[in-house]
Design a binder for these strands. Structure first.
Lengths: 104, 104
DNA sequence: AGTTCATATTGACAAAAGTTAATCTGAAAC
DNA sequence: GTTTCAGATTAACTTTTGTCAATATGAACT
């Protein structure tokens, strides 16, 4: 799916200051939800809401380990977002569009 | 003022499907508002609202020519957004490594 | 001066996104 | 089995964002 709406979802995930702060924390490495709740000083459902949006955008990946959920920045998801941004801001004459599809 | 909030504003500009569609039209080259109104099939105040958000993000530049306003994708604004996205999705250890080992 | 034309702004409303207490789920341990 | 704990989901609410008719602005004419 390559509609403008689906592309917008990727940037919508990055359009909130608190989610960018979460990403900043994840730049230090994989972290579990309980750590992020403490570091963000945020109620548990609020963090869960933001993590869902980040994960659905593909930029963050989650890993289940027993009761704990670990989050980390997805290399492939980030690369996809970067490529997407590059394409949508490049005049058409300058480059031929290549098909964008990302998998994990 | 939170720095994450100001970063978020750049991506907020890209978080709407209609604004991405406008960008897509601007990839063809500079266009004036009256053309975009027709191509977007959008009331004039609605386009004006979206153009303001795109311009304030730095991704689009406007140029006044008499009564007409011409819009185009800003190369520097786009480059800034791209660099921003690259930084916020790159693990910190990787960035440090790059600074430590410079290539000729 | 006044008129016209292109666009920006205002204001009132509708739609979408964010917050959080309460509740549910599912995994590990007893 | 039951209890506990981590996290997801729900539901009701607040805030923010998007829409568009009406109006204002400002430039280029007469």
């Amino acid at each position: 799916m390559n509609t403008c709406e689906s592309k917008a979802a990727v940037f919508k995930a990055l359009s909130d200051g608190k989610r960018l702060r979460i990403l900043e924390l994840l730049r230090e490495g994989e972290k579990c939800a309980c750590i992020l709740i403490k570091q963000m000083n945020m109620p548990q459902p609020t963090l869960s809401y933001h993590m869902k949006i980040l994960c659905e955008s593909g930029i963050v990946k989650s890993r289940q380990q027993g009761k704990w959920t670990h989050y980390r920045i997805s290399e492939s998801g980030s690369a996809y977002a970067l490529e997407l941004l590059k394409i949508i801001t490049t005049p058409i004459s300058h480059t031929k569009d290549k098909k964008l599809c990302y998998k994990d």
